[in-house]
């Protein structure tokens, strides 16, 4: 059978307006300007989340207590990127670790510099390298370095 014509269409998502609870993210970003990492702690079970939701994900109670976490931690898992989002090859492989910062129960993802891909491993101790100029953006926490 022959190919049939294509008609173009679109879901106009640009007309959509999403309100998203951002208290945890905004608290974290505000404190990053001062090189501090701040999450939220559940008074019942003690879990510390960063960025913090406004309810504990284990106890389902409202949590409002801020808690500072360290900018040092350990690698829980990692990947090494060789291609970008679209599959185009990167110039240099890029290590993306998922890090559990000391004092925090949730994990964050970032980029790891100063380590060769073959040397990165689970359990490796890392620390945050802060950007020189910080504006309250996710890029204030520029990358991780080995401790």
């Amino acid at each position: 059978m022959e190919e049939t014509k294509i008609v173009n269409g679109a879901w106009e998502l640009s007309t959509f307006h999403f309100p998203i609870e951002g208290r945890g993210l905004k608290t974290m970003l505000k404190n990053m300007k001062d090189k501090k990492l701040v999450g939220f702690k559940c008074p019942q079970c003690g879990m510390v989340y960063m960025p913090g939701p406004f309810y504990c994900r284990k106890c389902f109670i409202r949590i409002d207590d801020e808690a500072e976490v360290s900018d040092h931690g350990e690698i829980m898992t990692f990947t090494i990127g060789y291609a970008d989002v679209r599959g185009n090859p990167l110039d240099e492989p890029r290590i993306a670790p998922v890090v559990k910062l000391d004092g925090c129960d949730s994990w964050i993802m970032g980029v790891l510099e100063g380590v060769k891909p073959e040397d990165v491993h689970v359990g490796m101790r890392v620390k945050v390298k802060w950007a020189e100029e910080r504006t309250g953006s996710l890029q204030d926490m520029q990358y991780f370095l080995p401790e």
Partner: peptide, 12 residues
């Protein structure tokens, strides 16, 4: 504390 985000794209 809400972010009010708008998608800067359409799905074609």
């Amino acid at each position: 504390t809400f972010y009010h985000t708008v998608a800067p794209l359409d799905f074609g």
